[in-house]
């Protein structure tokens, strides 16, 4: 019997896109998909070690009260597992070391960045070098954006994908690096997976609203060196069926939404390496 692909979608404390993220994993062929509350991990009822694909969905962890996902990152780093010596953070680092996949969307991306999981140059997962801060417009916006994909990126999730169209739904999505060197390194290592673009998905765009938040170099999503850790502000799980598309009543579209390919890439990659 072949081994099962097991996906975990983390929720609780303000996360709110877990349902559609889990649905995406299921549609993509993941054999087991569990929506797990972070408290279940902290109480030792579930372990990250039992899964291959970690999904960090969008939402407002702790209300984003200290800055997006800040309090959430603080919890993951500092909280211990009830009755064990281990911390949740230890499980997370082991998960990465084992070569497993992590996808962070929106608040999940903010969480990865603030934990230091992205871009994690030289596999240093403790140092935060980039951030996602308030949109230049100063407001939350729900708006669909075109995305240019970087075919030279090692990103596992975007293999074979050429251009995407997803909604952004955030107030703090402006990608900024700590200094110009970090930005240079992101380009050099092809960490930049997605950029906000024109309608043809060929040219990165800095102008609002195509670039909805003022991100540096129109960066919408990045991965780590192995391409197994990927975070993005736009929501692939919001476009799983053509009826999700804002213009489905006027355009001929394939049955399957563009977001599904990202999850399918992940599940296929895992299945091959099982």
């Amino acid at each position: 019997m072949t081994k099962k692909v097991r996906s975990i979608v983390i929720t609780g404390n303000g996360t709110n896109c877990e349902m559609e993220m889990a649905h995406a994993c299921r549609l993509a062929g993941s054999d087991d998909v569990d929506i797990v509350f972070i408290s279940e991990l902290l109480y030792g009822k579930k372990r990250l070690d039992d899964y291959h694909f970690l999904n960090l969905p969008g939402g407002f962890l702790d209300g984003d009260d200290l800055g997006s996902a800040k309090a959430g990152a603080n919890r993951i780093i500092n909280a211990g597992i009830e009755g064990k010596e281990e911390k949740l953070y230890d499980q997370l680092l082991r998960f990465i070391k084992d070569g497993k996949l992590i996808l962070g969307v929106c608040n999940g991306f903010q969480l990865m960045v603030k934990l230091g999981l992205l871009p994690a140059f030289g596999n240093d997962y403790a140092d935060q070098t980039v951030t996602l801060t308030f949109n230049d417009s100063g407001r939350f916006e729900d708006r669909w954006v075109y995305l240019k994909t970087n075919s030279d990126s090692p990103c596992v999730f975007t293999r074979g994908i050429d251009g995407l169209y997803f909604p952004v739904r955030h107030g703090e999505g402006k990608f900024v690096t700590k200094d110009p060197k970090v930005l240079e390194e992101l380009h050099r290592g092809n960490h930049i997976v997605l950029q906000y673009s024109d309608r043809d998905c060929t040219k990165a765009v800095m102008d609002y609203p195509e670039n909805p938040n003022g991100s540096v170099d129109a960066i919408a999503g990045i991965c780590n060196e192995t391409g197994r850790l990927f975070g993005l502000m736009p929501h692939p799980e919001a476009y799983l069926h053509y009826t999700n598309h804002p213009r489905w009543t006027r355009e001929k579209l394939p049955e399957e939404g563009m977001g599904l390919s990202i999850f399918r890439n992940a599940v296929d990659f895992i299945r091959k390496s099982l």
């Binding site: 709110n16 896109c17 349902m19 559609e20 649905h23 969008g58 407001r139 939350f140 916006e141 729900d142 708006r143 669909w144 909604p167 739904r169 799980e237 919001a238 799983l240 009826t243 999700n244 804002p246 213009r247 009543t249 006027r250």
Partner: peptide, 22 residues
């Protein structure tokens, strides 16, 4: 309208803003 998330939960079919330019 734009400042409200109108498609979380993934089931949005007819959105509050529609048409050629959304």
């Amino acid at each position: 309208v734009r400042q409200y998330d109108h498609e979380v939960q993934g089931g949005s079919v007819v959105k509050p803003l529609v048409g050629a330019e959304n």
